[in-house]
Amino acid sequence: MSITHPVLKHPIEGSPGPGAGIAYFGMGCFWGAERLFWRVPGVWTTSVGYMGGKTENPSYEEVCTGLTGHAEVVRVVYEPEKAAYEDLLKVFWENHDPTQGMRQGNDIGTQYRSVVFTTTPEQQVAAEEGKAAFAPAVTAAGLGAITTAIVPAGAYWLAEDYHQQYLHRNPNGYCNHGPNGLTCPVGVAKAQVEVERPSAG
C-alpha cells in the first residue's frame, strides 16, 4: 500500500495526471532536501530514494558503503501550470554547496554528491543553463568550481519507509540544508540568448 504524504496528502508514489512533471535532485542528506521541496507551491508530492548506482533496489546500509554508487535523491512530482522546473532548480542551487564533490559538509561519501537527474531534454537544458548562470556567483564567493553533475535519470529506488518525510515526523531531526547566501539567476542565460537572437524578417 502506497504511503500518503503527511504534508501534501497525496500518495508519495502517485501523480496528479499525465501532464505532471517529475524531477530528481541530489544535494546531500535527503531528509532536509525533501522538506525544502515539499514547501514549494505547485509541488504535488515528494519522496526520497536512490539513483545513479549499479545495484538494484539497494538498502540504505548498502548505499552508505559507497560501493553501489547511488546518490540520495528527492523525487519531486509537480504541476507545471503551478510550479516551473526553474522554481525547483532555484531551490536546489540556493540551498546547498554545489562545489564539494562527494560530500556535503560533514556528510562524506558518494551518496552525498550534488547531482541533477533530468527526465526530459528540456530539463537537461534548463539545468545546464542554471549551472552556467550560477557559476559566477559561486566563484565570486570563493567557493571554487561547481561539481554538480547533470545527467539523464535512471532507475529510481524508493528509500525505506522511515526515511520518507523524515523531518515532518522528527521536526528536530538532523538537517544540514538551508540558504547558502547566494542567488541563482535561473532562466537568465536563456533569456539573454533569446534577446540576442536576431528576429525573423
Rank of each mutant, 00 (worst) to 15 (best):
Q104E: 02
D107L: 13
P98V: 03
A83D: 14
V77R: 00
D107V: 05
V91S: 05
N106C: 12
F92G: 06
D97M: 12
V91A: 01
N95P: 03
A84P: 15
E79K: 04
E94H: 00
E94R: 00
K82N: 05
N106G: 14
E79D: 13
F92E: 04
D107C: 01
N106L: 15
H96C: 08
L89E: 04
A84Q: 14
Q104W: 10
D97C: 00
E86K: 12
L89R: 07
Q104M: 06
P98S: 09
P80W: 05
D87W: 09
N106P: 15
D97Y: 11
I108P: 14
L89C: 03
D87A: 07
K82M: 09
K90M: 00
T99L: 09
G101C: 07
D107M: 07
V77W: 03
N95C: 06
Q104I: 08
Q104F: 04
T99E: 10
M102K: 14
F92V: 02
L89A: 09
H96F: 04
K90N: 04
D107W: 07
R103V: 04
E94S: 06
V77E: 04
E86Y: 10
I108N: 14
N95I: 02
V76K: 02
K82W: 10
E94V: 00
E81L: 12
D87G: 10
E94T: 08
T99R: 12
V77L: 01
H96G: 09
R75E: 06
R103Y: 12
V76M: 01
E81C: 15
E79T: 11
D97V: 07
L89I: 06
P80V: 00
N95H: 12
E94D: 09
R103L: 02
T99Y: 11
Q104P: 07
W93P: 07
E94G: 03
A84N: 09
K82Y: 13
N95G: 10
G105W: 08
P80A: 03
V77K: 02
Y85W: 00
Y85N: 04
Q100Y: 10
M102N: 14
P80G: 08
D97T: 06
V76G: 02
Y78C: 11
I108G: 15
P80N: 01
E79H: 10
L88C: 00
Q100R: 11
M102T: 15
K82G: 03
